[in-house]
């Protein structure tokens, strides 16, 4: 990403203080901020300006966030991050299914917010440059899930376009999980696949590696987007986020 480029970010929330706080936070990171206070305004701004990322609340007067997202998604491909106090799983699923890329629960952690904005923007812009070269990606034997790109030939992982260093074991585990997105692997499965020997009482070993992978891959390892623990069963990579 060229340093001189200032991405346009639209922040939408009916609480003006929150909009102001987020604006300050993001301006400091060097983004160009536009503000809106309900869904209608957001649509107007998006129609007029060249917006690269949208941060939007759900519960707003005039037009709620979900309706606005649906409208925007009719002709825009920009990353959209939902910012909401509704933290139920069903709310998250709803937000993601109408077309949001990410879902941040209020009260958010400012650092995490910044990180997620960065990640989404990077991916958007990065993938934009790579768009024409999808054939090259295929040639290079790549597994892509969301912002994760696993290059099998040169043992490389890109997270939102940024190189992340993995150990050999971590790479193998991630490869196993990414080859079968959505499938739940028990610790024994992972162990026998990666270490090539039968494992017993390997929960701890596997968990440690999983945690390391998470720390490298996830923005907030406590609320992972990709590498998930299925409690009582095993581990998996979330199928497709977008």
């Amino acid at each position: 990403m060229d340093a001189g480029y200032k991405a346009n970010v639209l922040v939408v929330d009916d609480d003006r203080d929150i909009v102001k706080a987020i604006s300050t936070l993001l301006e400091r990171e060097g983004y160009n901020i536009f503000k809106a206070y309900d869904g209608m305004q957001a649509l107007e701004v998006i129609a007029e300006k060249d917006i690269q990322l949208l941060l939007i609340d759900v519960m707003m007067p005039n037009m709620d966030g979900l309706s606005a997202i649906m409208r925007i998604r009719q002709n825009k491909n920009i990353p959209i991050i939902v910012l909401s106090a509704k933290t139920e799983d069903t709310d998250k699923v709803m937000g993601l299914s109408v077309g949001a890329d990410d879902y941040i629960a209020k009260p958010y952690n400012p650092m995490e917010l910044v990180a997620r904005v960065k990640s989404s923007l990077r991916r958007y812009l990065h993938l934009g440059t790579f768009n024409g070269d999808s054939s090259e990606a295929e040639k290079k034997n790549v597994i892509t899930i969301g912002g994760l790109q696993l290059f099998l030939d040169d043992k490389r992982l890109l997270v939102d376009g940024e190189n992340v260093k993995l150990t050999a074991t971590e790479f193998k585990i991630l490869e196993l999980l990414m080859r079968h997105p959505g499938r739940v692997f028990s610790a024994e499965d992972i162990y026998s696949n990666v270490w090539n020997e039968d494992g017993y009482a390997v929960e701890n070993t596997v968990m440690v590696h999983i945690r390391h992978i998470r720390e490298k891959v996830e923005i907030n390892p406590k609320e992972p987007r990709y590498v998930k623990v299925v409690w009582g069963l095993g581990y998996k990579i979330e199928e497709v986020i977008k």
């Binding site: 609480d15 519960m59 509704k86 209020k106 009260p107 958010y108």
Partner: peptide, 24 residues
């Protein structure tokens, strides 16, 4: 409960945001 928690979370969001800004 959902409403109350929403109503609690919204000001809390502002508090956390501004405390963060303040700390910088």
């Amino acid at each position: 409960v959902a409403n109350v928690s929403h109503d609690l979370k919204t000001p809390l969001t502002s508090i956390i945001s501004y405390v963060d800004l303040l700390s910088n």
